[in-house]
Amino acid sequence: MADALIDDGLKHSRLSDIGPEATLLLALARLRLTAMDQERIHQFLSVNGRDLDWGLLLDQACRHGILPIIGRNLTKHRLIHSADGRTLAPYRWIYYYAYDGNRRRNLALGDEYAKVIRSLNDAGLDYAIRKGPVLTEGVYHDVGLRRMGDLDVLLHSKSLPEFRSIAEGLGYTQGHLSRNAEQVVPFDRRTQLVWRVNITNSSLPFLKPAQRDDVEVFVLDPCLNLFQPTSGIEADAEEFLARAVDTVAFGEQSYMLDPVDQIIDVCVQMHVEATTLMYIEIGKDLTILKFLDLVELLRRLSDEQLETLVARVRQYGCGESVYYALHYTSQVFPDDVPQDLIVEFEPAVSDFLDIYGVLDGKPQRWDRSFGDRLFDQRRWESLKVHSTVPGPRALV
Rank of each mutant, 00 (worst) to 15 (best):
D84R: 00
L52D: 01
A98V: 03
D59E: 13
N102Y: 07
Y91C: 05
Y95N: 03
A22M: 06
S46H: 09
I69R: 05
Y97I: 04
F44N: 04
L79V: 07
A29F: 01
L26P: 01
D17N: 15
W93F: 10
N102G: 10
V47W: 11
H12M: 13
L28M: 09
F44Q: 06
D8I: 14
G49V: 06
N48F: 00
L15P: 05
H12P: 03
L24D: 03
Y97C: 09
T34A: 11
N48D: 09
D51T: 07
S82L: 02
L31T: 10
A27I: 11
Q60V: 10
T75H: 12
L33T: 08
G71T: 05
L58Y: 02
N102E: 12
I41A: 03
I70C: 06
G65S: 05
A98F: 06
L52P: 01
I80L: 15
T87R: 15
K76G: 03
R72M: 05
M36Y: 13
R40F: 11
A4V: 15
D17C: 04
K76M: 14
I41C: 10
I66D: 00
I66G: 06
F44E: 05
L52W: 01
A98G: 06
L57T: 07
D51K: 05
I18W: 02
V47D: 08
Y99V: 08
R92D: 11
D100C: 03
S13P: 02
L28N: 07
P90K: 08
R72E: 09
R14P: 01
I94P: 00
K76D: 10
G49K: 07
A61K: 00
A4Q: 11
R86H: 09
H12V: 07
I6E: 13
A27P: 11
C62K: 11
A98N: 07
Y99S: 04
V47C: 01
I70N: 01
L58A: 06
S46I: 00
N102T: 11
I70D: 08
P90E: 10
L45P: 11
Q60M: 15
A29G: 02
T23P: 02
L5D: 10
R30P: 00
I94V: 12
D7I: 12
W93I: 03
L79D: 06
Y99A: 04
A4L: 11
T75K: 04
C62M: 14
Q43V: 15
I80A: 06
I66H: 07
G65N: 05
L58P: 02
M36I: 14
G65P: 04
Y91R: 07
L56D: 01
T87M: 09
T75D: 08
P68I: 00
G101V: 14
L25R: 05
L57G: 07
N102I: 05
G49R: 07
I70G: 00
T75A: 10
L24K: 04
G65A: 07
T87F: 13
L56W: 06
S13V: 04
L26N: 00
P90N: 10
A61V: 07
Q43R: 14
H77T: 04
L28T: 11
G19M: 01
G9M: 08
L33N: 01
R92W: 03
R78C: 12
K11V: 09
H77Y: 15
H77V: 06
A98D: 11
I70P: 04
D7R: 15
